[in-house]
Each structure stands twice: as structure tokens, then as C-alpha cells.
Simulated assay, not measured.
Amino acid sequence: MKAITSKTLIRLAILGLLGIACMVTLFLLSENEMHRNNAFIRRYPHHPISKTYDLDLKYNSYYIAGHANDLLYLGNTTAPLHLLEVNLITKDTNHIRIKLDEPDLPFRSIRIGILAPYFFVMDGSVPCIFRGSITDWKAHLWMKDHAYFTRALPIDPNTLYIKTISSKTNEAVLGIIEKQEGTFNVTLNPNILERQLDGMFDVDGTMLVSGDNSQLGYVYFYRNQFMVMNPDLELLRRAETIDTVQVAKIQLSQRNAHGEIKMKAPPLQINKGAVLYQDLVMVQSDRLGKYEDKAMLDQAAIIDVYNWNKQTYQFSFYLYTIGKKKVKAFTVCGDRLVAIIEDELSVFRLKPTHFKKPLRAQNMANGYERSPE
């Protein structure tokens, strides 16, 4: 065997360095595509929100379950029947333990939803839904075995907005579960989610319910589109965000022996969390527009605000992070914006110059308030 000469070693080293350089270049180009789109320019008004305080939650496993007036409720993924109640005015906290009348079901993915004076405990893999009163936090089995679902949000004491899998097409579909006179009706609307590739990954997104429960929403993760519906799941608006990606950029594997399809590479995510607030849709995006500094992605989440009724882009604002902690979720409680930033809770005021007062605040300002029916 011939000895490797120094010239050969130099050539091999050069080839290796070129290969590494190519890989780094491709990675940087990929990262740039993931985070930048020079086709749009955002408008940032002067401080449309202002922070009031941060609260240490101690754990990063909390999610937003709902709110009732000035009380925010946080569910916990690692303690499924535990709730943390936060008084947004006094900052006082209260730990709540939910009791189920049938606690031995084979639960796998419990989620809690608050719709005062009720709360719901939901697991679409069983499938079952419990309902109880927030006065005693005891829940009774409300529905079992009528419909499987991947997500459910209560919209009135007897109705839930769900996402499920169609038995006819094996594709994701939005629907309504409604209890009437002791029986359950499950209504699916196959026309809301629009298939592009597989009808599952390509239509994935965030389900929304407005604060007064008068509208439902859905924001796609991987394309520049969102929809707003009425509580009967009839389409009111289909609108686009300021991003220009209209077709989901995802790579899928071939179906395996179990019939499963998986993503082959991280997808290009256009939209993240979102909130439906009166006639506004607030959408979190990590995509930088023209002239925006990439360093901002380490300092804040970008929230784009749209008027769904007028189908217009209004403005954007920064939701600043805490150190290296990232925004996990956010919601609107009255005239406050509340965000979970890993293990911290941040509370902000919405400025009325940019956000209308909620109906309750308007009524109180006018000297009256609607009583519950």
C-alpha cells in the first residue's frame, strides 16, 4: 500500500473544509428562509401594550385553561387535575385540585377548559368529557364514547368546538359537539380546513374562541391563512396574514406498516399561537419582514394584529421575553394581555387607542352591565 503523501492530505483537508463550508452555507440559507421574508413590511405603533408585572410560576408545565373576570386559570400538563388560579389584580394565587366522579378511566391527554361558572375536563383519546362548577371543582361525567377528538374548546355550557379525524377521509376536520335533551349531536364541517398535501399535517393549526364566545377561529401553522366562523361553524371570513407563503412547506415520509406518516424535516412554520379578540385576530409569528433585525427574535415574540371583519392588517407589536425564556402562549382577559413565558406569567395592559374596550368594560363605563341569562 502506498503511503499517503502530504499533498494528498492537503487536498483531503481542503475538500473536507469545502464540504463543511457548503453545509454551513446551506444551514444558514435554510435558517434565513425559516425566519425571514422580505416581501412584507410591518407597522409598529408606539407601545400599544404596557407591562404591569411578572409573576414567577416556578414550573414551565402550565397552559392557559381560561379566565373568569379577573381570575386566570392555568392547567398543568404534568399534574392534569391541578389548576393554578391567579388573581390578576392582587397577584394572589390559589392551588385547586379537581375531583372526578369517575377517576379510573384510561386517560392519556387531559385538558381543562374554563367557561364560568362551569369547567370542563376533556380527553379525546378515551373519549370523555367531564363538567363541573367552579364553586366546588367537582366534575361529573358529561359525555363518553360519542366522539373522539384531538382538541376541544367549550363555547357554551352544552356545546364544544372540536378538531377530530373524519372516519370517511382520515383527514382532520372541525366540528361541534352539542348536548340537547340528554342526547349528543356531533356535527362536522369538512369545508373549513382546506387540504393541500395530506389533510393532516398541512392543515394543522390553532383553534380559537372569542372572549364572548360569539366567534370561533382557526389559524394555520404552515400557511398564511386564518378563518373565523360563527358558533354553528359556518364560515364568516377566510383571510390571509401579511406573510406570502400560501402552500405549506412540509416534507412527509411514506406511510409505514402501521399506516403512519411522519415529517421528514422541520416544517416552515408561518404562524404560532393566536388570540381571537372582538374583531381582531392576534397572531404570533417568528418570521421577520423587510428591515427587521434578526436579533429581535431573541428578545421578543412578534404579534401581528388583523381585523378579521375588514380583512385588513392593522399593526404589530413586540411581546418581550424574560432573559432567554420564550413566549409559550398568550391570551386576552378583558383589557389585559397575559402571556406564559416558560415559568413566568407576564401581564400587560392593552392601550384603548389601539384596542377597543371589552363589552363588559364599556357597559360598566355606561353605568350598566348585562346580567347572566
Rank of each mutant, 00 (worst) to 15 (best):
Q284I: 06
M282G: 09
E344W: 15
I114Q: 02
L235Y: 01
Y318W: 04
I114P: 06
D92E: 12
C22V: 15
L12V: 02
M227P: 00
L9N: 13
N256T: 01
R237H: 12
T52Q: 14
H46C: 02
E102W: 02
N213K: 14
S109K: 13
N230F: 05
W308I: 03
L160Q: 06
I302Q: 14
V305G: 01
S50W: 00
L216I: 05
D145Y: 13
P231N: 05
V186L: 05
I242N: 01
V219R: 01
F149G: 07
L208P: 11
A152C: 09
R43S: 12
M1K: 08
N363F: 10
R108W: 03
T135C: 06
R108L: 09
L236R: 11
W142Y: 15
K249M: 06
A339V: 10
T77G: 03
H67A: 15
L345I: 05
G323H: 06
P372A: 09
I165W: 04
I162H: 06
L18G: 06
K272P: 00
K328G: 04
Q311L: 09
L288D: 07
F355C: 02
P103Q: 05
L26T: 07
D343L: 03
I162K: 08
Y148R: 14
D198T: 04
T93V: 03
L141H: 05
R131F: 04
H35S: 14
Y318F: 14
R97M: 10
I49L: 01
I176N: 09
L81A: 07
H95C: 01
N230I: 01
N32H: 14
L9M: 14
N363G: 09
A301K: 12
Q196R: 09
H140N: 12
D54E: 13
K324G: 07
F317D: 03
P45E: 08
A65P: 05
Q215D: 02
L12Q: 13
Y118R: 13
Q254P: 01
P127Y: 10
C22I: 15
L17R: 03
C333L: 08
V283S: 10
L236N: 07
K51A: 13
F330I: 04
P117K: 11
G259S: 02
N363D: 13
M34T: 09
D293F: 07
K357S: 11
T77H: 03
E178D: 12
L83H: 10
Y291C: 00
R11A: 11
L174S: 11
M34C: 00
